[in-house]
């Protein structure tokens, strides 16, 4: 599996640098490097990594952040009929400093973008971003002067959930995909142990993964009866 390596630079960013900050490069799985070939240290690090990731992915605390229509569907996923607590993500935080991930649920406006950036900066590592709905993914049906054409113009997005708005189930699937990706991550186990870069797995697109199965559906039910 290919990975994207991000290194946070301690130096103050240049004024002309544009968001998202930090350098990104495509790399191989760091666990395949020579140093991990040793049965003892390699296995140990592997187990530790999986354990930490397992803990992280099953206690994701969402940031209570909503922009538009998608937020209503996201809230629907939080309430009883869909019960996000099944995935350990029910501890909604009102402060970005306590949250693990942020769902950009709605349209990203030119006036709102600097605010979103500030809120993202206030979140502590490790942190993730789910882009929920077509507006956040690409601007969607709002190719208009006041809308940023996709939140990934300035935020690093981990999972894109399509739909306008996506159903609550789609949000839950997005959350599970984020969990899968977190399980594959390689982060420093401590600030004094090992490589300090963040390695995110490049997960495959669901569209490509399911295409064969999906195009086999040739007869769709008519909408004439319930």
């Amino acid at each position: 599996m290919a990975y994207t390596l991000t290194r946070a630079n301690d130096a103050v960013a240049q004024q002309s640098a544009s968001y998202p900050l930090g350098e990104r490069q495509r790399v191989e799985d760091p666990m395949k490097q020579q140093v991990h070939r040793s049965v003892f240290t390699g296995k140990l690090e592997d187990v530790l990594n999986s354990t930490v990731n397992w803990g992280r992915k099953n206690s994701l605390w969402p940031y209570n952040f909503g922009l538009s229509c998608c937020y209503v569907e996201m809230t629907t996923a939080f309430t009883a009929p869909h019960d996000v607590a099944r995935f350990g993500a029910e501890v909604i935080r009102a402060s970005p400093r306590q949250a693990d991930f942020m769902v950009i649920a709605g349209t990203c406006f030119v006036k709102m973008a600097p605010v979103i950036q500030q809120l993202y900066d206030q979140m502590l590592e490790p942190k993730w971003v789910i882009s929920m709905g077509q507006c956040a993914n690409s601007g969607g049906m709002y190719d208009i002067y006041s809308v940023v054409q996709g939140v990934d113009k300035f935020l690093p997005v981990d999972v894109y959930v399509p739909g306008c708005p996506p159903r609550p189930e789609a949000f839950l699937q997005g959350l599970q995909l984020l969990q899968d990706s977190i399980q594959e991550e390689r982060r420093p186990l401590s600030w004094v142990v090992g490589d300090q870069g963040v390695y995110r797995a490049d997960m495959s697109s669901q569209r490509e993964k399911h295409r064969d199965r999906r195009i086999q559906a040739t007869e769709l039910r008519t909408p004439d009866s319930v």
């Binding site: 968001y19 190719d143 002067y145």
Partner: peptide, 27 residues
């Protein structure tokens, strides 16, 4: 924006970028 000579689409314009300087200015 609602003047007839103002552009309507975001894609008629330069793509949106947010720089460190721009962020400070907007804030």
């Amino acid at each position: 924006p609602l003047r007839k000579d103002h552009h309507a689409r975001a894609t008629e314009f330069d793509p949106y970028t947010l720089t460190v300087e721009g962020q400070d200015k907007e804030q």
